[in-house]
Amino acid sequence: MIPIEPIRLQGAIHLTSHRMEMHQRVDISRKPAPKPGWKRGEKWAGLLLLCPSILAIAVFVYGFIGWTGVVSLTRWNTLVPDFTFVGLQNFVALFQDFRFQSDLRNTLVFTVFFILACLVIGLLLATLLDTRIRGENLFRNLFIFPMALSLIVTGVVWQWIFNPSTGVNLFLKKIGLEEPPVWYVDTRILPGVEWGRIEWGIPVALIAVVVAAVWQLSGFTMAMYLAGLRAIPDELREAARVDGAGEWQIFRRVIFPLLRPITLSVVIILGHISLKIFDLIVAMTGPGANYVTDVPGVYMFETTFRGNHYAQGAAIAVIMLFMISLLIVPYLLSGMRKEADR
């Protein structure tokens, strides 16, 4: 495998995705370390300038995360704070809870389908655009545009589109479909294997939500892949062609492997969006009948602010943090290792 020039690729990603907060962080960790040898005074000035943001992050990010962790171990499940230590009781209760088990299933299904669909569609669009068709600019903007919308807006619009009695079904009925799908109102779970307190499988209602989310974010995947494709020197393709490879082979054996770092970044970014998803669900479907479209974020909000179960809400937050860490920490670690190798 031919290593790509990391700096060049990074630059391209940076240009297309400078609005993604997550990515900026990823970027920083991957940037070549500044050359040592600055003067002593400068070093202290740098530290001083960084101080406010370190302080703010220490308090408002890590301090609050720690506090949430503390609350999750208490009995504070009423309006009035009660900091009696109860150990992991809140967590045990959650994992035995019908709703939370449904949430875990839904998050898993949603994340897998959402990321896969975004990757496939994004790569497809990027490859098509990379053929330098006419009006490329127009198409590129067209596909990226949904990303400019808030997920709340997307949710409201797709809620109308997939409304079983007034949305796209009106059209489906017109073209002769007797019993059109009922979309996010569907309560079926396929194949529905009973385990724990719930049926495991794919909740049909989630498909509608996945479509909405993919519509919003596949453009972003496309932009990432496009940047990756543009960073691949033409010489490589030509060399492969000289060696007698067909277009499909070039794609599979040369281009695709070179896009691996991009795929990884996309998976991380989309993964953390999907594990934390809240706004889209709230606007589009709510928890759904029998919790077929519920996710931990929605449960956390409702149990904390509707039910006043602060400790339980904190426990959900801790579990969500843990799930996201599973995804992000290995990535950050590998980034740090690479930096250290340099």
Partner: peptide, 19 residues
Amino acid sequence: APEGFVTEANQAVNTFVTQ
């Protein structure tokens, strides 16, 4: 009943409507 129970009841009813 207390808000905590109301939330629980809503959840139980939501499940019941389907099951």
